[in-house]
Design a protein around this nucleic acid. Structure first.
Lengths: 206, 206
DNA sequence: TAGATTGTTAATCGATTAACAATC
DNA sequence: TAGATTGTTAATCGATTAACAATC
């Protein structure tokens, strides 16, 4: 798809474009331009054209972009023209919120199991799932070749959980714990820590 | 504190430094170096020194940084050498997880109220709070001069909620809804959308 | 056609890294 | 002192923007 390697900062913007385009479609819009899209996102039109040009020519001069077509292309590029099965580790309040969130499926991700190492939680229901134990998780990841995990355990338990996930074959982890994981370099990790965002804002709100 | 304006990309790394330093302290470590800190975070030592030098001279040649001292300085720089009161809007599963999360307080943020516009939810308990209605939220923000809000409502309700918050005086919003908010330019917004992170990773996990 | 917008090139801007004198 | 590490400068690297020919 790409000739050489595309900068990660560009890859990181594509999901944002995809989200905005999907929103446009849901409002009945069929065509957009780099300027229109850029205004919604607070990004320059030049940057959007440059980003997309890394992957092909998706627009028409004078007209702009057909939104459905561009959505299809972005889905292919990002490999979300399929549904990814993911495991969820951690069945606390956050795990419950993640398990119940309907927004994953429509954007390419299906939770197929929820796991926790607390024996008191194992067997309990959580959303549409029943909490299972870690050994079952390892089995499941191996048998179904699961490659993506969401980690919603306390910080103290995150590293060990990540190691288990990697050992079983997971190659991408979305980590909700406020800690830095050590993983092999062929394993991708993305972090969500709301406090980092808050502290970034308080700098400007004195 | 800063002579001219500090690049936002640097501001964004300071909370990460602060988090790592706090972790070191909790493990009994008292001194660190730019190299030590950088290795934990996957950042070059030069970058860490350069970032910190924007705000002052915090280290000693030959020795490194006193962790407690550096933590204090970073807290001052980021304005988290105090506790910020914040309101939480949205009392669904995610709102509950946020309301129950103990990690905010120790890092500078105290939730002081939870609000939802669903009359069936108003009056119900959520964590240590009782869900209140939006009109009470407006009052509270005005009376207590609340400047920060966390927004955990569905996408469709996010823009209207944000407008109410801004009208009442909020100047920074942490938005959990997968949508772009339109706010006046003196209002800061940070976004959390787990799917963006997942889609960024699937690009590399084909 | 006239107007609009793309894809791309070159110019600008900003961020990162390397290197080292200063000094603890 | 000798070794280590800072803060800072200059060099490098990469990302963004401006501009425009191509063309729908």
């Amino acid at each position: 798809m790409q000739s050489l390697s595309v900068p990660d900062i560009i890859v990181g913007r594509l999901p944002l474009y995809l989200r905005a385009l999907s929103h446009m479609i849901s409002e009945g819009q069929e065509i957009t331009s780099s300027q229109d899209l850029g205004e919604r996102l607070g990004i320059s039109s030049a940057q959007i054209r440059k980003d997309l040009s890394q992957f092909g020519e998706f627009g028409k001069q004078g007209t702009g972009y057909n939104i459905s077509f561009l959505i299809d292309q972005l889905r292919k590029i990002l490999h979300v023209d399929r549904i990814w099965d993911v495991v969820l580790v951690g069945a606390g309040d956050l795990g419950r919120a993640v398990a119940n969130y309907r927004g994953f499926l429509e954007r390419g991700f299906r939770i197929i199991g929820v796991y926790d190492n607390d024996p008191k939680k194992v067997g309990q229901p959580i959303g549409d799932f029943v909490i299972e134990e870690p050994s079952r998780m390892m089995e499941k990841i191996r048998q179904d070749r699961i490659e993506i995990a969401m980690l919603a355990v306390p910080s103290a338990a995150a590293q060990e959980a990540a190691e288990n996930l990697v050992e079983a074959g997971v190659r991408a982890i979305l980590c909700y714990a406020p800690t830095s994981l050590k993983v092999p370099k062929d394993v991708r990790v993305q972090y969500i820590d709301p406090v980092l965002h808050l502290q970034r804002m308080t700098y400007y709100v004195p």
